[in-house]
Design a protein around this nucleic acid. Structure first.
Lengths: 144, 144
DNA sequence: TTATATTAAGACATAAGAGTCTTTTATCAC
DNA sequence: GTGATAAAAGACTCTTATGTCTTAATATAA
């Protein structure tokens, strides 16, 4: 699996917040209901993003979570880095310590190029653009 | 993590067998010792590859495991498919059911291209070529 | 100030992946 | 045949990821 469940849920939640960007706070319960994600699990995931400063939160009635910065300034890579770390893009695929360009493992050549491309694309794709595409019905946010 | 530990160990074991292709059977104990992999764990992984017909095995003294086909006819993708399945290359990254080109999720466009390239490269890289590169000291098989 | 809504925090439960150990079965050498 | 060697099979343990539940803290509104 490329991304952990936490990471996938995190991405989908930030997408939801990006689409609902005009609302200052959206209750996590609303997101978890709409996206079909366990409420308590999602809460823990969003706490990580809150601590990272990516989203802001407010307790109590009228509270919830919301983007803490323009959707267009948050990339897919930003969310992945917070929730899954950069292992996928940094460590040797075969787990060999000290694997590097001048001392490569058997999958090094292949993954080196692919991961660089993937990282670049994930860094360039921002949630503002994705939210717009969702609004224009070009891509999907939900199941079904 | 791109590949499971089982898959990584499987790849490294098949690499070892490819480098030692002139020997009909190599004891799993030798592979696990040399590669620093748990013997019993590796045994279970190699059983999968044996059942898949990729390697052959022989019990008893002088027994062990060996390639069941030319190293050059086994691709990295073959081993990955047996041990991790094709989920990585088939399922939607965001886990949305029914995600397809005409009904894409937010990461669909990015991953669609990347995974196709990655799959192609993994299919084209065979263990004969890798073994030769290891023998010629161009790439590494072990830690350190 | 009291009730309600909502995140924060952390204990707890379940499932899957990773790893260990023991017993059984098959093969070779003597 | 007997003993040694090695894979096969399966029970078992440990760890991590995933998911649930309960309580505390905080904000709003009546």
């Amino acid at each position: 699996m490329l991304l952990s469940k936490s990471c996938v849920y995190g991405i989908r939640a930030v997408l939801y917040l990006s689409v609902n960007d005009e609302r200052e706070y959206v209750p996590i319960k609303e997101i978890s209901d709409k996206m079909g994600i366990s409420f308590h699990f999602l809460t823990k995931i969003l706490q990580v993003l809150t601590n990272a400063g990516m989203i802001k939160s407010m307790k109590g009635a009228k509270g919830g979570v919301g983007l803490n910065q323009p959707a267009s300034s948050i990339s897919l890579y930003d969310v992945i880095r917070e929730l899954d770390g950069e292992t996928l893009f940094e460590e040797c695929v075969l787990g060999l310590p000290g694997c590097a360009d001048d001392n490569p493992c058997s999958m090094h050549k292949i993954w080196r190029v692919t991961k660089a491309e993937l990282k670049k694309e994930l860094e360039e794709e921002n949630f503002g653009s994705l939210a717009q595409q969702i609004t224009e019905d070009e891509i999907r946010l939900y199941d079904v």
